[in-house]
């Protein structure tokens, strides 16, 4: 079992489904550095799911190659390859006849891990995904949609795979729980530092979750592959600009916090005070709402750090 995060390389990866004229994924080349989250985003039918399933060979490549830490997926035993990759899908696909612990233990059992090891691992993972250890003995039918998705994530992490594939993992969940799951997933990722390929068709989710975003357009062609910031500030073409939305300038503001600005010394009294980890977007919203031109940024300890003006926010 490999445990370190792995670098993932798509090298001219192409998939043409049998009986189809055009490709579903067309000469896709991109590198996901070890430990980063790459989000595949794009319109429906853009080939996101196909690209993802090429990696664990649920769908065979037509041409090109995919390498994990330099080794082609084609050179590995397909069953071993899949066991070393965490796989999470929207419908989760938990085994209804197994308890939560049984589900989480699926891959460890394939590796003949002892029962006690699985029990301990399952408890550890439940805590990691924010579920009470008492959930271990429940069946999937006794869980809510959000809880099932967490268990699906825990199951995928069970053998500590260096690479995770996630296909719209939060797609079927209501917006509030979804936002919470995203936050928890990002917190979790800070701890475990996996290489993750994350499919969504929601741009906001892509911006929030991704270290890098790959935008796929119809026919599985890569339109742009860059950091969220770069994509919002410098969309490669009309398609990307259109896809990320007219409010992309505001979305870009949401990515930065007050703490990242160069602040001027505090001179004025009675300015609105905001913590340094507030996003520029929220700060601007406050200035607009209160009809003010500047605000006082304060540190975690409550001490003032300096003043930011409207111009600073928009610079």
């Amino acid at each position: 079992m490999r445990t370190e995060a792995a670098e993932l390389v798509f090298d001219e990866a192409t998939k043409v489904y049998p009986g189809r004229e055009s490709a579903a994924v067309d000469h896709l080349s991109l590198t996901v550095p070890a430990g980063e989250i790459c989000v595949l985003v794009g319109p429906s039918g853009g080939g996101k799911t196909t690209a993802l399933k090429l990696v664990n060979r649920l769908i065979p490549l037509t041409s090109g190659d995919i390498r994990i830490d330099g080794t082609s997926i084609l050179e590995q035993d397909v069953v071993e390859l899949r066991r070393s990759i965490g796989y999470v899908i929207q419908q989760v696909g938990l085994f209804p006849h197994m308890t939560v612990e049984g589900n989480i233990g699926t891959v460890p059992r394939l590796y003949r891990r002892p029962r006690s090891w699985i029990k301990a691992r399952s408890a550890e993972l439940l805590e990691l995904v924010g579920l009470d250890p008492s959930y271990a003995k429940r069946f999937p039918a006794q869980l809510s949609g959000g809880e099932r998705q967490r268990v699906g994530l825990a199951r995928a992490l069970a053998a500590n795979p260096p690479l995770m594939l996630m296909d719209e993992p939060f797609g079927a969940i209501d917006p509030i729980v979804r936002a919470r799951l995203q936050d928890e997933f990002l917190r979790l990722q800070k701890e475990i530092r996996k290489t993750v390929v994350f499919v969504t068709h929601d741009v906001d989710e892509a911006i929030k979750v991704g270290d890098r975003i790959a935008i796929l357009r119809e026919g599985g062609r890569l339109a742009q592959y860059d950091t969220p910031q770069q994509i919002l500030e410098h969309p490669a073409d009309e398609f990307v600009a259109e896809f990320v939305g007219r409010d992309r300038a505001l979305k870009a503001l949401a990515l930065r916090t007050l703490g990242e600005l160069e602040l001027s010394p505090a001179t004025e009294d009675g300015l609105p005070r905001l913590p340094a980890d507030t996003s520029l977007r929220d700060a601007l919203a406050l200035l607009v709402a209160e009809r003010r031109n500047a605000l006082l940024v304060i540190g975690a300890d409550g001490a003032p750090l300096g003043v930011a003006t409207r111009e600073d926010l928009l610079a």
Binding site: V79, T106, L110
Partner: peptide, 25 residues
Amino acid sequence: PEVLESARGMGLTRRQTFLRVELPL
């Protein structure tokens, strides 16, 4: 189908999928 997909995706062989998933279900 999603249960079968996750079984396959996690690296269960055909036989393991039959004995551990399909038959009990």
